[in-house]
């Protein structure tokens, strides 16, 4: 297969949300000696932009978005080691650990944010729902997250967002991560009250918020107050 065809296969696999096909096409691209940045930009990134646009226009829905995000991850899992070996700066915007806090089994909002973040180039580690605070922190440490994204859909579970931030403060680890919060009962006032770094009202807001936080991180800065994207 010619280079154009292989990149076309990567593009199509991500567009169609075919995880296995995306991994295989990307592997074929690397075996054919193609430039990984070209595969990324003309293949997966191009496709995922279109997926994002279609979702924003309600031409496709959450399942398609999730599947394309998974396909994008499969592509990146092949490309990243190659980029690292080449010494090419990694294109991922940042590493985000996301989950729904303890006592809360709601997943749809978290899945939407997770998929949109991945579609926008973030490396997303999704730890699922009903995640105890200590597990959140263990996982954040393990994956060396830049941002903790805490979702809650109940007023009784939103308290765990506060608990996690308080634990980070008390254990003198608050500077290690940015912490952002969202979900049904979560408001900008709540985010400010508990000392979160940011609040996103919608999934699109969450993406903008994380982009801004990573911009601040790259400039070795931090928000002076809770950033609100609403």
């Amino acid at each position: 297969m010619a280079g154009e065809d292989i990149i076309g296969a990567v593009y199509q696999a991500v567009l169609d949300g075919e995880e296995d096909a995306a991994g295989k096409a990307t592997t074929a691209a690397m075996e054919a000696g193609l430039d990984p940045m070209r595969v990324l930009n003309e293949g997966g990134a191009k496709a995922i932009r279109l997926v994002g646009e279609r979702f924003a226009n309600f031409e496709i829905y959450l399942p398609e978005l999730m599947l394309s995000a998974d396909a994008m991850k499969a592509m990146m899992n092949v490309l990243l080691p190659v980029l690292k070996r080449q010494g090419t700066p990694q294109s991922r915007k940042g590493r985000i650990l996301i989950g729904t806090v303890a006592g809360d089994v709601h997943d749809i909002g978290k899945n939407l944010v997770s998929a949109l973040l991945a579609a926008n180039g973030f490396e997303v580690v999704d730890v699922g729902v009903n995640v105890p605070s200590n597990r959140f922190l263990d996982e954040a440490d393990k994956v060396q997250a830049d941002i903790l994204a805490l979702s809650a859909l109940m007023s009784t579970s939103a308290y765990y967002q506060e608990e996690i931030i308080k634990y980070l403060v008390d254990s003198r680890q608050r500077e290690k991560y940015f912490v952002v919060v969202g979900g049904g009962p979560v408001t900008p006032e709540w985010a400010r009250q508990i000392g979160a770094d940011g609040y996103g009202r919608t999934a699109q807001d969450a993406v903008k918020l994380c982009e801004e936080l990573m911009r601040l991180k790259r400039s070795q800065s931090k928000p002076e107050q809770t950033l609100v994207f609403a």
Partner: peptide
């Protein structure tokens, strides 16, 4: 309505306060 506290204590999900 939903009580956000019980006897002044915050009601955390999955705890005896619930």
């Amino acid at each position: 309505p939903s009580l956000i506290t019980a006897y002044g204590q915050k009601v955390l999900a999955n705890t005896p306060l619930e």
